[in-house]
Each structure stands twice: as C-alpha cells, then as structure tokens.
Simulated scan of single mutants.
Amino acid sequence: MAKKRIRIDMEDSDGARYDIKLEGNVTRDKVLKIFEMMDLMNIEEEETTTNIDSVGSKIWHIIDKFFPMGKFTSTNILEKYEDEFNEPIKLSVISTYLSRFSSKGRVDRTRNGREWTYQTIKISQKQH
C-alpha cells in the first residue's frame, strides 16, 4: 500500500515558522484538524480592515477572499477582480503581481500545460 505524506509550511505574522508533516493514512478529516489547530493558534492572519488602495493589495484581497486554499490561474483572478472592483485590469498586470507573490513566497507557482497555476497554502503530497 502506498504511503501518503503531506507537509505544510507556514509563517505567522510575527515571523515564526511552522513545519507540519503527516505520514501514513492521511485523511481529509486529519488535514482539517490541522487547519483547526492553526486557527486556534491564530496562525492565519486575523481579519483586519486592510488598506485596499493599490493594485497589488486588491489582487491579494481577491486571492485571500476567493482562493484561500484552492488552486487558481491569472484568468480566475481577472474575472473576480473585475466583478469585485468594477474596473478593468490587464491580464499581464495580474500575471506580473502573481509572479512577484511567488518570488516572495506568498504563493506556489506551478506550470500546468500552457499556463501557470497558483496556490496560497503550501501542501506537498508524495506517495512512496
């Protein structure tokens, strides 16, 4: 039987880093318990009124609101951005910001065919 391994790397607002590893019979319930523990430890940033006046902060707001754990593309962000803020934005601008977020370690970036996919929570799953 294949062994599953999930690793979650996090950093809180104080700069403390957390590395959680699950191995063996990893179920959805066990992963959800880890997220509940993170919530109890206040690892996720608390809801504060952030200043959404720059393009970068607006894009991050869209990511945080609509794609906190799932995968997304720059096109997904474009659609949500225009719906949320009722203003047009070029796809190249979104791609540039997503690339910057990736280089700063805020999102994972993976090549998927002809496009890049992004994910905010770093979960890697390997089978041995």
Rank of each mutant, 00 (worst) to 15 (best):
A2C: 05
A2Q: 08
A2L: 05
K4A: 09
D9F: 11
D9T: 00
D12A: 04
S13C: 05
G15W: 13
G15Y: 12
A16E: 13
R17W: 04
Y18D: 02
D19W: 02
D19V: 03
I20G: 09
I20E: 10
K21H: 12
G24Y: 00
V26A: 10
K30F: 07
V31L: 07
L32W: 07
I34D: 01
F35R: 13
D39G: 11
D39F: 03
L40K: 15
M41Y: 07
E44W: 05
E45Y: 06
E46W: 01
E46D: 12
S54L: 14
S54M: 13
V55R: 14
G56H: 09
I59R: 04
W60T: 09
I63C: 03
K65C: 02
K65I: 00
M69L: 07
G70T: 13
T73D: 02
N76G: 00
N76P: 00
I77K: 02
L78K: 10
K80W: 07
E82N: 03
E82V: 06
E84S: 13
F85V: 08
N86R: 06
E87W: 11
E87S: 15
I89D: 07
K90E: 14
K90F: 11
K90P: 06
S92Q: 12
V93P: 06
V93E: 15
I94N: 07
L98A: 01
S99V: 03
S99F: 03
K104D: 14
V107F: 00
R109G: 09
T110R: 10
T110P: 10
E115A: 07
W116H: 05
T117G: 06
Q119S: 09
Q119V: 05
I121Y: 03
K122H: 10
K126L: 08
Q127P: 03
H128L: 12
